[in-house]
Amino acid sequence: MTFSKIVVGAALSAALALPVMAQDMNAVEARQGQFKLYGHNLAVLGGMAQGRMDYDAAMAQTAADNLFHLTRHDQSRLWPEGTDSSMVMETRAKAEIWENLDDFTAKFVALQEASVALQGAAGNGLDALRPAVGAVGQACGACHEDYREES
């Protein structure tokens, strides 16, 4: 094989790999956007639960409804293998996610279940809101503890 064929072959391979890398980065950006939306809604709910904001039943219910729907978003394309912090500098996702996918998925299901309870409690006063927000926080924290790099 001549040198020019090797160069052309390498260039073609690199060109074909670029769309996959771009798709992977798009997935990382999309999942980070989803986490920002989680945080945006949890800031409202947590602020009320902790007394940093006045309790507003309608606002709490909207934030809880948003969180519920966010946790129902199809996650399958947001987590392509190879988009962990050892491969992509813009993420804090640990490689252990893909090594322990069943556990990672179970932790996400726990977040979904906690969001259902939160949705049912949010508009029913602070006494109902506080433990439901705490359960969502525990679900988030359980996943972060095992599968998210420190900042």
Rank of each mutant, 00 (worst) to 15 (best):
1 M>W: 06
3 F>N: 05
3 F>H: 07
5 K>F: 11
6 I>L: 15
8 V>G: 06
9 G>M: 07
10 A>K: 00
10 A>V: 15
12 L>P: 01
14 A>V: 14
14 A>S: 13
15 A>G: 07
18 L>D: 07
22 A>K: 03
24 D>L: 01
27 A>Q: 06
33 G>F: 13
34 Q>D: 00
37 L>S: 03
38 Y>L: 02
38 Y>E: 00
40 H>Q: 14
40 H>D: 10
44 V>Y: 05
49 A>E: 05
52 R>K: 14
53 M>H: 12
53 M>E: 13
54 D>N: 15
54 D>C: 09
54 D>G: 15
55 Y>S: 08
58 A>M: 03
58 A>K: 06
59 M>T: 14
60 A>M: 01
62 T>K: 09
63 A>F: 03
64 A>V: 06
64 A>R: 07
64 A>D: 03
67 L>C: 10
67 L>N: 08
68 F>W: 11
75 Q>E: 09
75 Q>I: 07
76 S>A: 15
84 D>L: 04
85 S>I: 02
85 S>Q: 02
89 M>I: 05
90 E>T: 14
91 T>M: 06
91 T>D: 09
92 R>G: 12
92 R>Q: 11
94 K>W: 04
95 A>L: 04
96 E>P: 00
104 F>H: 13
105 T>P: 01
108 F>V: 07
108 F>M: 11
111 L>T: 04
113 E>T: 08
114 A>F: 00
117 A>T: 05
121 A>W: 03
127 D>C: 05
129 L>G: 04
130 R>W: 03
131 P>S: 08
133 V>N: 02
133 V>T: 03
134 G>S: 11
136 V>E: 00
137 G>P: 03
141 G>Q: 15
141 G>S: 14
142 A>L: 10
143 C>V: 13
146 D>R: 12
147 Y>I: 07
148 R>Y: 08
149 E>A: 08
150 E>K: 15
150 E>T: 09
